[in-house]
Amino acid sequence: MHELSVCEALLSQVRATAGTNHATSVGRITVRLGPLSGVEPDLLSQAFSIARNGPLTSDASLHIETQPIRIRCRECGNENEALANRLLCAACNGFRVDLISGDELLLAQVELRGVARPPNSPTERKENSDHV
């Protein structure tokens, strides 16, 4: 069960964001998770209920947005959704495919409380880019 390690990494990023923006506490935390990230949403939620006890996050809630697995066939170009252990092209049954989505493990949003003006993210990021 490595979800506790992942959760601790999540909370340290959340606390850094809260700290940079001088927030007094954190509300809803949104995470994007793909089935091929190796992290189980239910286990992450359980780990979160233990790990959140600490500065700034003791009242925080975790919202997990599960992402679908999508693949693109390198042979015929077809795109389709797929199961974690059946990543085959739905058109030609080929296994030479690229993963378009499904392995995400992202901290997407943090709701900050006690912030007077619109906050800044602690990390440099490109506008409108959600690709990491």
């Binding site: 990023q13 992290v39 493990l105 992202l106 901290l107 997407a108 912030v115 007077a116 993210s121 990390t123």
Partner: peptide, 18 residues
């Protein structure tokens, strides 16, 4: 939403530190 509550976009990988 209270005036002192804001949602910030972060979009960093949870494994970034590792």
């Amino acid at each position: 939403t209270p005036a002192d509550e804001h949602t910030v976009e972060v979009l960093t990988g949870l494994m970034d530190a590792n």
